[in-house]
Each structure stands twice: as C-alpha cells, then as structure tokens.
Design a protein around this nucleic acid. Structure first.
Length: 579
RNA sequence: GCGCUCGUAGCUCAGCUGGAUAGAGCAUCGGACUUCUAAUCCGACGGUCGCAGGUUCGAAUCCUGCCGAGCGCGCCA
C-alpha cells in the first residue's frame, strides 16, 4: 500500500543515514520491490546501492539496517515484521490492515482512475482505413490499439481526442474513378459498395500490369480531383459516403468510436499554405521535378512534398494535418497508431515539423505495431474483417450449441465472445510483435476441459464473479459495506496474493500509458483472473452460512470483479452477462 | 547492399526499463465435479534466454560483431 511504502522509505532513509550513507526517502521508495517468492515477504529492499557508499557488503548492510529498524517495524500497525535475507531486507505487511486499505479503495467506483492528465489533451490518429479498399484484418490492430490507448489515457484524466485519418484522398482514388468509368456498375455499387469498389480496385491493378498507361490515367483522374473537377468530386463524395457507412457498422461491432472523422481530404485547403511555408523557411528543394525536403544528413530518403505533376502526397497531408491538429487541440501529445512499416515516413514528417521550429514536434509519437499473418487469402484478395468475425462466430456458436440460452441471448453472447476473443488476442502481446491469426488460439478455453489465456477465459471468470454477487445478495441481502468488513478473515495465501495484485492496478495503468502498451493491461487481466480462479477453486467457498466470512470474501470478489471489468473495458472486450 | 524491428521451454508469449533459484498458458503425463458455472483448478515434465565477445560486484536486460526472420529504402498510402 502506498502509505506503507512511504513509511518504509522514511524508516530506511533514516537508518541508512544513521549508518553513514546518503539515501533520500524518495530514493528509498523507488528501490522498494517485491521478493521473488511470497514466503520471503511482501516488500523487499535491496542493499546493493548502499554498498558502494558504505564500503561494506550488501549482506552486512542488510543486517545492520534490519537491527536498526526492527523496533519501529514492530510498532507500526501496517507492518508484520522484517528480516535480512542476504543482500535484501524483506518486510511482511499486516494482512488485515493491508486488505482493508486495498479493498476499500478497489470496491469504489473509480478505482484506478488518475488525475495526472487533468487539463491535458492527447490526440490519437488511429484506425484510418483506406476508402478504396475494404476494412481488412490489417486495420484491426490500429483500431484496437488506438481505442485501448485512448481508454487508458482517459482513465488517467486526459482529454482524449480520437481522429480517424480516413484514407479518402490520394492517387488510389484516381485509379478507382478511372476503373469505375471503365467497368463500373451503378447497380452493383448500390447493392454492395465495398465489394464493388474493391473489385474495381483489383481489376485496375491487374489491368495496369498489362498496360502501364492506366497508371497515368489514374494519376490524371486524381489530378482532376485535386483541381476541383466537378465529375471527379461527385465520384469522390459518393465513394466516400458509401464506404464510410460500411466502416461505421464495423466500428459499432467493435465498440469503437471517434471524436472526429478528419480524413486526408479534410486538409486539402491547408496544403498550399503548408508548401508555401516550407518554401519560405527554405526547407524545400526541387529534385527530378518534385518538391522535396532533403534528409540526407539523417541518412534518410528525402521527404516528398509535391510530385512532379503538381499533386500532393501522404507526407504533405500529414504535415498539414499535424499543424491543424495542434491549432485545434493544443495537444500535450499526439499519437499515430500506424504499422511499423511506416517508421521512416513518420521520422521524416516529425523531422520536417522540427525544422519548421514547432516546439510540439517532439510531442508527436509514432506508435508502431507488428503485422498479422495467417489469414488465408486467395491470391490478390483481401479478407474483410466482417467476414472473418462471422466465421469465428460460427465456431463459437458450435461450441455453445448445448448451452441453454434463448436465441436472442445466444446471438448476443456469441457476438460478444467472438469480438472479445479477437480483440483480446490482438492486444495480449506486446504490440511490436507480428502474429498469426488463429482461431484455435483465440478461442482456447471455450470447450470444457480446456483453458487458456484468452478473451473467453476472462469473460467466463467475470461471469462467475458476477454470479457470486447475485448469490450473495440472495442469501445475505445487499453487498456488505466495505468499511464494516472483518478483513482478518482474508489471511489465506490465495486471498493475500489476489489482494496484492489488485493493489497494483493504478500503477499498472500508469506503466501501460507510459509505454503505450495495452498488452500490459491484458496481462494484468489474465493474472487477476488466474489468481481469483485459484482462490475460488482452492476450497474457499465465497457464499456460505458464515455471515462474516461471506462478507469478507464477497468484498474480495467484488473488488476483483470491478478491477477485471475495468481492465476488459479498457481493452474494449465486451462482458457477457452469462456464458 | 543500407536501415529499422524481432529472436527466451516442443508451440504462443511475459520478464516492471541490470539485481535473490528466468515466469505463465498450450501441448504431454498424473490428479480434482453429491459443493457458489470443470468454459475451472492442483501437480509433474520441460530453458547453455539465437551465437561469440565486451562493460559490471551482478547481464535475458546495456555495447560491438555475426547468424536467422519480418519490414522499409523518391513521385503509393
């Protein structure tokens, strides 16, 4: 517990100074860790750093400090004892005192909420699908990671502004228009816009392999669009609207939303002024007819600003977007949730911003992530995320076939389990890693006798916890007041381990935010579920005749359930009422 | 060729930013349902942390080189 650690820091600092060393309470507090095994104690203090100052072995220092503070430790109600173990000083905390502090906090509504972000804005550019292509598996990661990070930062008090940087501009639009003019079909477009647009896109590229002049046709159409041509603009509006409607359906399915749909096209009017400013600042030069910012001193290829035909590029729009976003949001940080393959692009963009002397350039961060493999693709065909989810849903439904749910409830649960499985799997490894899309791994634990570190496992654990609360209420009435519970009844190892873990939740959120790493929350959720299931299956009946014991245990269960639910909520994993 | 990222148990992954015997899940083997959802739990087996050097009292963690994999390298996004 926080004040317990502060108390220890004060004691240690004092004792160290009496022994002739310099150690501030803050330093002492930072050094506190946990012993590798529970039997050794609850909090540990390593004496290595003092060894240089005192020119003695760490072990000897541990013994000295142990003697020095033993009295104070035994007087403190929060502490159980202290002993020296080699170079470490191990403390045990008073179980009941500790449990009371942790569980009173964790049964409160806003457990884990922080205030460090108050008054600060974080912008997140995430998901950002390309209109000319279907929403495929490749967009899943940006969407899930961006959403989770946004949730985490909101939890810490930040104002989070999610921006969907829709790929609704660029040469690929020109290609699409040319393709529609050549082979398009109004009927097919209305019936299934995404598929039709995608078919056109594929057909274009196939045809372009035979006849390279088509690429010029595409570029020409895009140039028309940029010049405000009426026909091109009408196509653009149409394609965009139809695609967006489709995307919104998927976002709803995934439980994701955005503050703004500021696509690439949104910044069109800001491009010319940007290029002027770059010129005026003397950052640009002409190379092979294109306007570029040279990056050779950083061993990077030049950043392309304007193509030889006068049209703009991705980087141009990202630069204009960055300026606009800062004007609008005055962000403290801006995060670009984009795949690792675009690392160089963002380095270039941030470098240009830096050369333009924007102090906030250093607050822009590319948050890269690895790729998903293993989706069987017929050659040249992307697989729609929607179809993938539906396929998974069939598997889930099959496994759940013998569960006694109504059709309506079954439909809801299978959807929640499927989405939860995919999102959790995606967020369960450090984001930089590549992974294979594999239903067997995502759904492991769904079948009786199986188990696994999966979304369904967590959802199941949560439903059990909720079920316990219902049964407690049936048996004993309302849930107990956490202030009036006898926490000495939670002294078992399994309970103490769980309490210690619940205590770490607020700190965990800060780490996850610091590292932009939702997987830390995922792992935490797995751990808390495993600790609870271990307690639950270890012969500790929660709801029993024993009123006081039941009250203590249901308070622990409630704190666990809330913490687990908050964690899963941050990750976007839905919580079925029953499973 | 150059650059970035990754390499930990048969498989999928952690390892709190150098510290006490490297941890989980899956798989394998052996256990636990007349008891709050066994979609669970308990135990066993399993690792020269890619290789070789270096820094340090101490390295999976930091540095260098090599090997392997993924990605990127001017008018796509």
């Amino acid at each position: 517990m926080t004040d317990t650690r502060s108390l220890l820091a004060t004691l240690l600092s004092q004792a160290a100074e009496d022994a002739g060393a310099t150690l501030s309470t803050d330093e002492a507090r930072d050094l506190l860790t946990e012993p590798p095994r529970r039997e050794m104690g609850d909090i540990a203090f390593p004496c290595f750093v003092l060894s240089k100052q005192l020119r003695t072995s760490p072990a000897a220092i541990a013994t000295t400090l142990c003697d020095a503070i033993a009295g104070a430790v035994s007087d403190a109600p929060a502490l159980g004892g202290v002993n020296a173990a080699g170079p470490y000083l191990n403390f045990t905390v008073d179980s009941a005192y500790h449990a009371a502090g942790v569980l009173r906090a964790a049964t409160d509504e806003g457990y884990g909420r922080g205030s460090e972000g108050e008054g600060q804005t974080i912008g997140i550019d995430f998901s950002s699908p390309n209109i000319a292509k279907p929403f495929g598996i490749g967009h899943l990661r940006s969407t899930s990671i961006g959403n989770a990070l946004g949730n985490i930062f909101r939890m810490l008090g930040y104002r989070v502004v999610g921006i969907n940087h829709l790929g609704d501009w660029g040469t690929q639009f020109g290609k699409l228009m040319f393709a529609y003019e050549s082979w398009g079909n109004e009927e097919a477009l209305v019936k299934d816009p995404i598929t039709h647009l995608y078919d056109l896109y594929v057909r274009f590229h196939k045809a372009a392999e035979e006849d390279e002049t088509l690429l010029d046709e595409g570029r020409a159409w895009f140039k028309r669009l940029e010049d405000g041509d009426e026909q091109a603009t009408a196509y653009w509006q149409r394609f965009r609207d139809l695609s967006l409607r489709e995307f919104e359906r998927i976002y709803e399915r995934l439980g994701v939303s955005f503050e703004h749909y500021w696509g690439e096209a949104y910044y069109n009017d800001m491009l010319a002024p940007l290029v002027e400013d770059l010129d005026r600042a003397g950052l640009t030069e002409v190379s092979d007819g294109a306007v570029v910012v040279d990056m050779s001193e950083l061993d990077m290829p030049p950043c392309l600003i304007v193509k030889a035909d006068g049209a703009t590029l991705y980087a141009t729009r990202d630069l204009a977007a960055a300026r606009y976003r800062y004007e609008q949001l005055q962000f403290k940080q801006f995060l670009y949730i984009v795949g690792a393959e675009q690392t160089v692009h963002f380095r270039q963009v941030f470098e240009v911003l830096r050369r333009m002397n924007y102090s906030w350039a250093e607050d822009c961060h590319h948050i890269p992530f690895g790729r998903i493999h293993g989706i069987s693709t017929r050659k040249g065909t992307l697989v729609f995320l929607d179809d993938i989810l539906n396929k998974g849903k069939e598997r889930v439904a099959e496994i759940m076939a013998d569960k006694p749910f109504s059709d309506q409830e079954r439909e809801l649960i299978t959807e929640q389990v499927t989405v939860g499985a995919v999102l959790f799997y995606d967020l369960s490894r450090n984001r930089i890693k590549n992974y294979d899309f594999d239903w067997d791994l995502m759904l492991r634990g769904l079948r009786p006798g199986e188990s696994g570190q999966t979304g369904p496992y967590l959802q199941y654990t949560h439903t059990r916890l909720a079920s316990l609360e219902r049964q407690y209420i049936e048996t004993h009435g309302e849930l107990p007041d956490p202030a009036a519970v006898d926490y000495a009844l939670l002294g078992e190892d399994a309970a103490r381990a769980l309490i210690t873990h619940i205590e770490k939740f607020p700190e965990l959120l800060r780490h996850a935010a610091r590292d932009y790493e939702p997987a830390q929350v995922s792992r935490y959720a797995i751990e808390i579920a495993e600790l609870f299931n271990s307690f639950y299956s270890g012969g500790h009946k929660v709801v029993s005749e024993d009123r006081a014991l039941s009250a203590a245990r249901i308070t622990l269960a409630n704190a666990t359930r809330r913490t687990l639910a908050t964690s899963l909520g941050l990750l976007g994993v839905p919580l079925p009422a029953r499973m």
